[in-house]
Design a protein around this nucleic acid. Structure first.
Lengths: 241, 241
DNA sequence: AAGTGGTCTAGACCACCAG
DNA sequence: TGGTGGTCTAGACCACTTT
């Protein structure tokens, strides 16, 4: 039941990065040093370092060495990723608190967004997510109680709302809108930012079997977060125009 | 001047996928078959298939084989879209003018973004795109002259820089970063917006055959533009792992 | 000259799946 | 039982950078 050797080496290096022992710029052991200390072959050491490099944790310079990379504070765009895991992947500490939690009667505009023909009740949750104690995301979320009836029973201490919903409801379809905004006074206070700092607002709707599951607005202070994506072009080749 | 063997094998497989010869679900040659047909060792064949799997093009099932994967659902937010066609699709009139055009010696930070080991020359272009006469996008672009040597011969009257590059250079990989910014005075004047209006900054890099083609920053006034995407989640439960 | 990463080989053992 | 992928080894040659 032991994991592969190259995975153990990767984990060993990630531990040192996560713990802060190896900060960005630090030189990590060379392939030959790993061969000695782990009693493995060079190909195995090479695979561990090569994969960590592909994943963006390390950078390598032929003839010089392998170094810890600066972890960018950015979130993957368009995937349903868990901010807690994203922060953990950077070796930082995630925490969150609930600012507001209620069940409301949906006003017309919200009922439209949920594609509900008649007004109904919705769960409403406002949370602040912090990275090493600094607020990085304000989550303002409405949830359809017919699709996720147990959403309001969660305390979200160990699991984020996104993670809960992904696990509880299969998502068929996603809609994202990204815009730059000047936050309101309330938003500014919750995020603890200055008066003229713009924010990124990511508006997300998700569907499951034709029903809107949740409508969420995720607000990121511009100085603390950017949205990121990188991918290989699909070989079918059709880059639109 | 020859590329590594594992890269040649990857390219060989991608060609078949791109051409449509191998459709999703098709079984690709096994490691042993590649060993024979390419006269390589199994480790080299393994690396090619493993990396294509990590990049999302193939899926592997131990004891069974390796198969072409369904292309992932991508959002238009992440595609290379041509702002001229986007505006035309809304029935509006697109126009653009060149604010600046030059060839510069790349400073270190830019050389790093282009993954150039030593400083070199770069094309630099600043354009303003308007929709019905209103500025909607400020395009600030650097281009690698080794990859697109004729970029500077274009006048971009009938074709946007994005459209030219897509046609001239096959794009393998894309990176996007989105952030909210407060524009500089110069940017504000070019976009003709008020003093406290935030903007969306879309930072894009594209690669072709391992070389960075272009680094572009596209700035959109918050009041005039939002980025949007909607897509179906690809049928999950595929043979991941 | 010594050390680094980049690649490659020709074997090997294993767990798994199919006929 | 034979083919598949998953992993690993102990060598090797190369281009490169640092000392």
């Amino acid at each position: 039941m032991t994991s592969p050797l190259y995975a153990q080496v990767k984990e060993h290096i990630l531990e040192h990065i996560r713990s802060g022992a190896w900060t960005p710029g630090t030189r990590v052991p060379s392939e030959n040093e790993l061969v000695e200390s782990f009693s493995i072959s060079r190909m195995t050491a090479n695979r561990a370092l090569r994969e960590l490099t592909a994943d963006g944790f390390l950078s390598r310079v032929p003839g010089v060495g392998t170094f810890v990379k600066e972890p960018p504070a950015r979130s993957s765009l368009l995937e349903l990723r868990n901010i807690a895991e994203e922060i953990a992947a950077r070796g930082h500490k995630h925490a969150a608190y609930i600012d507001r939690r209620e069940t409301i009667e949906a006003p017309q505009a919200l009922a439209d967004e949920f594609e509900l023909r008649q007004a109904s009740k919705l769960f409403h949750l406002v949370m602040v997510h912090t990275e090493n104690g600094v607020p990085v995301q304000l989550e303002d979320r409405y949830v359809n109680p017919f699709v996720a009836p147990k959403f309001n029973d969660q305390d979200f201490a160990d699991i984020t709302p996104t993670a809960y919903l992904v696990a509880a409801v299969p998502v068929d379809e996603l809609e994202h809108t990204v815009e730059a905004i000047m936050p309101t006074v309330e938003q500014r206070e919750l995020l603890d930012i200055g008066e003229h700092e713009p924010c990124l607002a990511l508006h997300r709707r998700s569907w499951s079997k034709g029903h809107v599951v949740t409508v969420a607005t995720l607000i990121y202070p511009a100085s603390r977060y950017a949205l990121y994506s990188r991918y290989k072009t699909s070989p079918s080749g059709t880059l639109s125009q």
